[in-house]
Simulated scan of single mutants.
Amino acid sequence: MTTALICIDMQMGMADRIAAGRPQANPMAEAHVAALLALFRARGLPVVHVLHDEPETPFQRHLPAGAPMPCALPVTGEAVLWKSRSSAFAGTGLEALLRGQGTQRIVVVGAVAAFCVTSTVRAAFDLGFQVVLPGDALLAFDIPAHDGGRIGADEVLRVTLSLLGADFATLVTADQVSGVLAA
């Protein structure tokens, strides 16, 4: 079974949030993303980078915040797609690219767990892809609560993974992905 790695929104704007002290879960997420990129590259498996490019935000391809983070720099031969919506499938050609490669299963890493990662995982499931989600290779931040206050980053990630793991993805750790690829 062909498996591709989808690396979502690992952009300098995320690094800026972290550097500014924004509460986050998974302080090792960047290292896990880099390790998974290395694993897929070493095995000659497809890697696709999907980056956010949205007017009126810092996440634009021509701005510093839109550049890829050092841990997730694309290399020659890897597809780089730009999106202006939450899901990596919305208007990017990602589905056609994956189907053209014969991809049936995807491993999704990146940012932000409760937003673009969630949208992408749900869309992938709806399109018939098997989804593997290494929860420790996701960036997750605190968010404002609908009824006031804030929801901590760890709780946001816990709820996000619980929802996605219930129906849409197989939850693993970054260290377990090599075993998934062997299966």
Rank of each mutant, 00 (worst) to 15 (best):
V121L: 14
L157R: 09
F129L: 14
P55F: 11
S84W: 04
G135H: 11
R61M: 07
M1F: 04
L127P: 02
T2M: 15
D142T: 08
I143K: 11
V132N: 11
R85V: 02
R150G: 00
F115I: 05
G148R: 04
P46F: 03
G100Y: 02
L94I: 00
N26H: 12
F141H: 13
Q60Y: 04
L181R: 02
T173I: 06
V159R: 04
R17Y: 01
F125M: 14
T160F: 02
L127A: 13
N26Y: 04
D53M: 09
M14Q: 06
I151F: 03
I151N: 09
G100L: 08
E78Q: 04
V117T: 02
H52F: 01
L98W: 09
S84P: 00
L63H: 07
H62L: 11
P27I: 06
V131R: 04
D154F: 00
Q11M: 02
T57D: 11
A137Q: 08
A35Y: 01
A15K: 00
T76C: 03
L98S: 05
G91E: 11
M28Y: 09
V109H: 08
A113R: 03
H49P: 02
L127S: 07
G13C: 01
H32L: 04
H49E: 07
V50N: 02
T3A: 13
V131L: 02
I106P: 06
A153C: 08
F129I: 06
Q24H: 15
C71K: 08
V33Y: 10
L157S: 10
A79C: 05
V107M: 04
L181I: 06
V75N: 07
A111D: 08
V117F: 03
T118V: 03
D53T: 12
A111V: 03
L5K: 03
G100P: 07
P68N: 05
P74Q: 07
L37N: 06
T92D: 08
L163N: 14
E78C: 03
T92I: 13
M12K: 02
A114N: 15
H52A: 10
V50E: 05
A20T: 05
A169D: 05
P144N: 12
P144Y: 01
I8P: 01
L51K: 03
G66F: 00
I106L: 14
V156N: 12
V117N: 07
L73M: 15
T170P: 00
L51N: 06
L163G: 15
E155P: 00
G66C: 02
V33G: 03
L139S: 12
P64A: 10
A25D: 07
H52D: 07
E78P: 01
T173L: 10
L98M: 10
W82Y: 14
I151D: 04
V80P: 01
G93Q: 06
A114L: 10
V180R: 11
S119F: 14
V156T: 08
A153W: 09
C116A: 15
I8H: 03
L36G: 06
D175I: 02
L139K: 01
I18G: 00
M12F: 00
V177A: 11
R122V: 15
T92K: 08
E95R: 14
E155A: 15
I106M: 14
S86D: 11
G165M: 12
T57Q: 10
T118Q: 13
M1Q: 04
L98R: 10
V75C: 11
M14K: 00
P134H: 08
T170H: 13
T92P: 03
F168V: 05
